[in-house]
Each structure stands twice: as structure tokens, then as C-alpha cells.
Computed example of a mutant assay.
Amino acid sequence: MENETTPTTTKDNEKAQGGNHLLYMMFKWLVVRPLLYLFYQERIYGTENVPLTGNLIVVSNHASDFDPLIVGSCMARPVAFMAKEELFEIPVLKQAITAFGAYPVKRGAGDRAAIRSAIESINKGWATGIFLEGTRTLDGKITNPKLGAAMIASKTNAPFLPVCVWGTETILPKGAKFPKLFQPVTVRIGELIPAPESGDRATLEAYTQKCADAINALHALGR
């Protein structure tokens, strides 16, 4: 399948989603990975399933605000996630999350700009992370998957890498002001699911459900 996006020039790319791979990897290995290992006894399975090159969409369940850091840090390559557009209005934080490849998305609305940003992210060499349900769930299971990730996959010929985070819902429960420490966290990385063969709605729905089933199956394995 040919890439359906319009080619961008170098100048266009400089104005598009940013990101710094070196800074990303330094933050991952010097800060995120040690903290997760020390305070959350993190277990990771399936790292051999992560392709190091080529277009890629990392698709995960979502139960905590910490999930982007946790999922991204388990990959052997940088992963850019969508972030609430409100975060891009905060000085310093905006520059920080932009450096790590994040791009804004509007909550509660279909945001074509976010989809375009995700496609640009993939075209610039980032693996792009998307939460299949679009929002957090109380138990980490996927019950209402959205079609946006499959649409992006069909336009970029990017395969899905299903990922399950288990136990993250206990890190920062509703109403808590500070994250809880020493909560066991497990990440399971599944096998690649090739990009959908077409972009019609029926195909995208079946593809999305296949991915949701794969993630829920990983979740059922527990710790």
C-alpha cells in the first residue's frame, strides 16, 4: 500500500512535530527505567517482538497517566505519544514533551489534526504510541476501542504492535494527590499485526477488534 500522505519538505518537518531521539534515550535510561525498576518491580515480556526499523504503531490499553512513560520506556526505539493539548499551553512543559516527540490531541472530539500529526510522526521515523480506547479505564481492559489507530495504520502501512500494561491503575487512583510506590507493574509486548489491507470501515472495525482482543488476552495473563 502506498503512503497516502503528502510529502513534506525539510523546512516543513522542522515546523512539524519535533522530538530529540538522543534526549529521549538519555531520559529513558537515566531516569525512567531506574525508577520503574526500583519502585514498581517492573516486569517486561516480549521485547524481542519490537521491530527496530520501519513504520510502527504501538497500540496499548490505558489505565494510568504514567502509561506513556512506561510503555515508551519498554521499547527498543523512541515512541511518540499523543498528549492532551492543554499540556502544550504550559511553559517549559510544552518544550519538554515536544522534545520527546509528543503531539497534541483534543479530548472528546475527533481531531483530524492529531491524526495528521501521528502520520507526520511516523513519516519522520518515530514509532507512534496510541491508546486504543482513547482514554483510561478503571481495570485496564479494552471494551470500546476506537478506529483512529487503524485509520492511521491504513494510511501509513504501519503494523500494530499490541502492548498490555498491567497494574498501572493502582499507581495513581482517583482522588490521590501523589503516586503510590511499590505497586507491581507488568508490560507484555505481543506479536506484530500487519497493517490493514484497505481503509473501508468494515475492515478497520475488524482490524481494531483484532488488536483489542490481542491486548485483552495479554492482560488476562496478569502479573
Score class of each variant (00 low, 15 high):
42 E>S: 14
165 V>A: 09
171 I>D: 11
37 Y>D: 14
85 E>I: 11
218 L>K: 11
53 T>V: 10
153 A>Y: 00
213 D>P: 10
101 G>M: 06
37 Y>W: 13
26 M>A: 15
160 F>H: 11
31 V>C: 08
114 A>D: 01
222 G>C: 06
93 L>E: 09
194 P>S: 04
123 N>V: 00
58 V>F: 00
36 L>H: 02
121 S>H: 00
222 G>M: 04
156 T>C: 03
99 A>Q: 13
122 I>Y: 00
41 Q>A: 13
197 E>C: 03
15 K>N: 12
55 N>R: 10
98 T>M: 12
37 Y>T: 15
212 A>P: 06
57 I>Q: 05
13 N>G: 12
117 S>Y: 01
34 P>R: 06
160 F>T: 06
93 L>D: 07
6 T>H: 10
49 N>A: 00
191 E>V: 14
147 L>Y: 05
77 R>T: 07
25 M>D: 15
92 V>S: 09
9 T>Y: 11
54 G>L: 00
135 T>N: 04
22 L>K: 14
18 G>S: 13
33 R>W: 12
168 T>M: 07
103 Y>A: 01
1 M>D: 13
5 T>G: 10
49 N>Q: 11
119 I>H: 00
134 G>C: 03
116 R>H: 13
57 I>C: 06
18 G>Q: 14
120 E>D: 14
136 R>W: 06
61 N>R: 07
63 A>G: 15
42 E>C: 12
213 D>H: 08
102 A>W: 03
59 V>H: 03
43 R>S: 14
192 L>P: 05
140 G>K: 01
58 V>Q: 06
156 T>G: 05
95 Q>D: 15
8 T>P: 00
144 N>E: 15
101 G>H: 07
108 G>E: 08
206 A>L: 08
104 P>K: 08
60 S>K: 07
88 F>K: 09
203 T>Q: 08
33 R>C: 04
5 T>I: 04
197 E>A: 12
37 Y>I: 15
210 K>W: 01
136 R>M: 05
130 I>H: 07
170 T>H: 15
188 R>Y: 02
206 A>G: 12
149 A>I: 04
199 G>V: 03
46 G>Y: 01
187 V>P: 10
110 G>I: 11
69 L>S: 10
66 F>E: 05
83 A>S: 12
24 Y>F: 10
16 A>H: 11
130 I>P: 03
10 T>F: 13
105 V>A: 09
36 L>T: 04
